[in-house]
Design a protein around this nucleic acid. Structure first.
Lengths: 199, 199
DNA sequence: TCCTAAAAACCGACCGGTCGTTATGTTATT
DNA sequence: AATAACATAACGACCGGTCGGTTTTTAGGA
């Protein structure tokens, strides 16, 4: 194994371990020693690759949000019919809901520190805006298709984004895993009945 | 000042300071020394009144949720007409949104630790269920009034609850304070247009 | 191909400081 | 005098980060 391979491999070990621990225990309660132990590397290796514990967190944000964004656009872009697309999207959230404990850990951790750490805020805000735009544009498309009534696209987009995050938040409270994908579909259906143009 | 007064006063100083710091900095980053300093008491006083740092947090959860529940029921119970009541309620959330940074700090802190601490979960889950029921019953009332179409009240209630928390979450990301009460009204209006029975 | 020196990657003991909690002493109320 | 309420200093565990040293890879000449 050459140096490049070795380097990226340990770096990945560290980020994987850090992701898991940050999600499970939170940033503050996660120790560098704990990350190293789980990653199977030493502190020396850790600080060779990262400047600080915070630096790992910052580096991870980009990865997380990029993954989320990729998933989102994958699901939504293939929507010819916007209302149908939204319902499909809701259904495809099921696996995310099933791993809710993990994702919610990350999500909450990110949100918490966005409100407390300016660097985190900067790293989060731009992708977040794009999420907003994605939803807004989706509504615009729907209006253009004539499938959605003439509402303010920004408001409706915000409604959808809020519903998603809110429902996600609720799901984390429940212990037994219900069919949240279905639940989300039902919610969107209710909203759609209002958004759909009526003749 | 007699002993009882003195006791409750210092206890209140401690809980007030703790609330502020927990909301601002989070549980882990809040130090007992910091709480004591802000409360103007000594560590001795702190540990005379509370068993541990966690105990203060646990004690505060009840207070927070009770306050939230009181506010919520105050706003919703005077609703003769459910759709109107919902819109009113949304408007009355404005002051909450204005103090968003503070409330969101508490909210996120509570949610985070609900997913990580069984005691916190136990303290949170019961009031949360009541929130759910409040919204569900609101929808039921609306259906009974004939003002809301025949949807599953639990789903619709969850929709409203998710929207509330989700929108609240969004608001915390924005630096400039917009008129979030209005925004929430708009969202609810969109949903209502779907929930309202159409002739 | 083999040897070697430099560079990269990694190790782990250790340090300075912090933090929750406690033990002991002091003041105010009963 | 007895007890409740509070103050202060100290303890011990822990944690992020450092530093001197070791191992592994790389590069280049013989």
């Amino acid at each position: 194994m050459n140096n490049q391979q070795r380097s990226t491999q340990t770096k990945n070990s560290i980020t994987d371990a850090a992701t898991l621990l940050f999600a499970r225990d939170g940033f503050e309660s996660t120790t560098v020693a704990g990350i190293c132990e789980r990653a199977g590397v030493s502190k020396g290796a850790f600080y060779y690759h990262f400047e600080s514990k915070e630096a790992v967190f910052l580096a991870l944000i980009d990865t997380w949000l990029a993954t989320l964004e990729r998933t989102l656009t994958e699901v939504t872009f293939q929507a010819e019919n916007v209302p149908e697309g939204l319902l499909e999207m809701a259904g495809m959230m099921q696996p995310v809901f099933e791993n809710n404990r993990f994702f919610m850990g990350l999500f909450l951790e990110l949100w918490t520190h966005t409100n407390r750490n300016e660097k985190v805020r900067q790293a989060t805000i731009t992708p977040y805006r794009r999420f907003q735009d994605t939803f807004t544009n989706l509504i615009k498309d729907g209006i253009g298709q004539g499938a959605i009534s003439d509402v303010d696209p920004e408001i409706a987009g915000q409604l959808l984004l809020s519903l998603s995050s809110g429902l996600f938040l609720q799901a984390s409270l429940e212990n037994e895993q219900e069919n949240w994908g279905k639940k989300m579909q039902d919610c969107i259906q209710i909203i759609l009945d209002g958004l759909k143009r009526r003749n």
